[in-house]
Design a protein around this nucleic acid. Sequence first.
DNA 1: TGCCCGATTAACT
DNA 2: GTTAATCGGGCAA
Length: 189
Amino acid sequence: MLKRIRRSFFSRSVHEVAPDLIGATLIVAGVGGRIVEVEAYHHTDPAAHSFRGETARNAVMFGPPGYAYVYRSYGIHWCLNFVCEPKGSASAVLIRALEPTAGIEAMRRRRGVADQRLLCSGPGRLCEALRITGAHNGLALDRPPFAIFAGEEAVEVVAGPRIGISKAADLPWRYGLKGSRFLSKPFVQ
DNA sequence: TGCCCGATTAACT
DNA sequence: GTTAATCGGGCAA
């Protein structure tokens, strides 16, 4: 029986929410899969968008938890975050990879590739596969088109340094499902 | 106003 | 291993 995650799930520290999201299922308009990789971004962290204060782009991060923060990366891709902690904390979890479980044919059409491992293994790829754009910025995570379900069984979570950042690159705030073939990059031992 | 760089990806050599 | 695609934030002037 699938248990839907409510907005209150996100009103905790990103360091609790991030590993708890591994194994949960994210569905957007009927398409999605199991979350196998995330990264935590805290407002005291130089690598976080919210580190230098509120701007028009990151305003959603400064709002209440349980909402989607979507931003454009490298002018090309979209990246999806879940806002966490009490309002004003400006902390969020970046969703980096999914194991596709629902709407796989739709994902293949949108992504233009057949290999299931290339559909959602990366923050930009997963947004293209789920058709997430700036239009989703600020939407509640417990209302359509979003739906998030708790994992049905306990999973083994591994941690490591985050990817693609230059500041605070040593912090082990990337979390993944141990042994998953759908990670954007493997975790080093 | 102009310049640099980034929570990326795919297509190169 | 390297590079282009391409946009907005942040900072210097």
